[in-house]
Design a protein around this nucleic acid. Structure first.
Lengths: 342, 342
DNA sequence: CTGAAAGCGCTTACAG
DNA sequence: CTGAAAGCGCTTACAG
């Protein structure tokens, strides 16, 4: 037996489909006895309205497409989790795409999102190539970027001030007395998490007149393994840093592990500060100091803002939302006692 | 201007909508010149077919609903990531629901899945209450359970043999010479990860005639914090274990941290073995030995099996798939040298 | 090889 | 307050 349709309910209740539709949608102007009869028919038949059919006529799917670089990362999984929660609270559902460095897949997914007629799209990375740029350029579905800001100005982003955050993190190490500060960076093709954080780091040093070795600056891919490998490169040099600023907690943990495996101690020998404030910071020993992004808030605000865009509340201006970063000091950094004040 | 519909394409190309539909779906029996004209019209108009409308007539959405207990956990995020990958390869998209101990939300989501007319559902936990049991009982959408096996026999599961895996993990500690082996368990309402793992642990001890203290057995919720708290309880006792078996890597890491914070060392003072084989095992120091589930394979097989169910390949029997567990020895366990053989 | 028409399961003016 | 009819954007027999 086929699943019952609205027509079956109508027949069963002895009313028109219009009336059934009305009680389904909680409209008033339905007499109580009819409403009751319809409700009973629905229950007896175990009727469940087709969201597909509804979407078609309403021209609204209540679907949000989300593009995550890597759900496996503690940062993204946390933000995804709050995005899901906020969306769910607003009766939206998530269509999730997990990239992992696969640009072709992203374009394909964006096309799927378009065909699915999702009401809005959340993108959490900024490796936008020309094809994608062109595609989203002519897409008339609201798009919001979360935790990153691509070059195109027409899209709104929910981010922190990555430059300032990196500056402050570096400054923290400087204030502890460090001058040999290594940098484990991201992808310089990324404006937000690549370039801005690097510039923040180097300005913080420059403002204090600190010069740095070339080998103290390394770039990777934000992951633990990458942090490990880059740290290894640094440790193989003649002079090694007394402190490390990594642009993700995952990288920082990789660095900590590498330091540990080489027989050094954090923070006694080398201090390490991470970035993101993910749950990893509390899962490792020593606990990792980190420049925290307000992850939960970021996820919530992203969805709220996207819903604004969807409902077209023009009173909400099409402006980026800049959230506050925050230094959380844990146990992975210490003061550097030497006399090097040169 | 509205997004173009198939009718617009037809008009633009000077053919019928039927023909447009045919080229859209790559059917043969369309003359080359017509096909070319239609294709050009599609390109010029930037036409993208509505998946919604298609779904309605085809009675197929290519959607899979996934219920994850907590995307934030390294185990679930990894399995989700491979589920997504496999689904994507087969042209299916994921509708993701993140529970987090919220049963009401689950029922609501299952209803949404039903209304969305998803082609199949993947569930990754087993806290099925009566409402949910009844609901999925009358749902005629294929359901598959991944990493857990609920009591109802009519659903297929993709799992490991949790009893044997827990037995083997415990046995590993026994073989290293330990007899005071603490157990950090899960939720005993869970058959798979609660009861089976506990029974495996206790049988392994019993088979060697090892008695255990009551306080050596604690139950939590699989998370890091829980592992920490339970370990604290154990360390506060008069006699403490020389080894710990935790039923998740997250809990094991919590235990390791607690041990560390109390001034003890892993594995010198206390050995710790985890369960899952998540990426956390390599992110902590000492690296965590763990009873590994084949997470990637599990995700892939789950989707493959579900697609079998969906396409109704009756040649594929409706049987559970039991994958192989594997002990991965890292640095968190050591032999116990004392003479306690009593 | 091509097209007119019915139909997928709903909602929404419109009329009463 | 209620219902008949059109329409959302496609696909799919059916006929030619």
């Amino acid at each position: 037996m086929m699943a019952p349709k609205i027509k079956d309910v109508a027949k069963h209740a002895g009313v028109s489909v219009t009336t059934v539709s009305r009680v389904l949608n909680g409209e008033k102007y339905v007499k109580d006895d009819l409403r009751a009869r319809v409700q009973r028919a629905i229950d007896e038949l175990g009727y469940s309205p087709s969201h597909i059919a509804r979407s078609l006529v309403r021209q609204k799917t209540n679907l949000i497409g989300v593009i995550v670089p890597d759900v496996t990362s503690s940062f993204y999984s946390t933000i995804l989790s709050t995005i899901e929660k906020t969306a769910s609270l607003n009766d939206y559902n998530l269509l999730v795409c997990n990239i992992i460095e696969d640009i072709d897949k992203e374009l394909k997914y964006l096309q799927v999102f378009q065909q699915m007629r999702v009401d809005g799209i959340i993108i959490m990375h900024e490796k936008i190539n020309d094809d994608i740029r062109e595609f989203i350029g002519k897409l008339d579905i609201p798009i919001i970027f979360s935790s990153v800001k691509p070059v195109e100005q027409r899209f709104v982003s929910v981010i922190i001030d990555d430059y300032a955050a990196a500056y402050d993190a570096t400054r923290h190490l400087i204030d502890l007395g460090h001058t040999r500060i290594g940098f484990l960076g991201g992808d310089m093709r990324d404006i937000t998490s690549g370039q801005n954080r690097y510039i923040g780091y180097s300005h913080a040093l420059a403002d204090r007149g600190i010069k740095t070795e070339e080998t103290f600056i390394q770039f990777g891919d934000y992951k633990t393994q990458s942090g490990y490998d880059l740290m290894k490169v640094m440790l193989d040099q003649e002079t090694i840093p007394t402190a490390i600023f990594a642009v993700s907690d995952d990288m920082a943990v990789g660095a900590m592990n590498c330091i540990h495996d080489h027989g050094f101690k954090v923070p006694q020998d080398i201090s390490v500060i991470g970035f993101d404030g993910s749950q990893l910071t509390e899962q490792v020993r020593p606990r990792l100091s980190s420049m925290e992004q307000p992850i939960l808030e970021m996820g919530k605000v992203t969805v709220d803002k996207l819903l604004d865009l969807i409902t077209g509340s023009e009173n909400s201006p099409k402006k980026d939302v800049i959230l506050q970063h925050r230094l959380v000091v844990r146990d992975s950094c210490r003061t550097y006692p030497d006399d090097i004040k040169a």
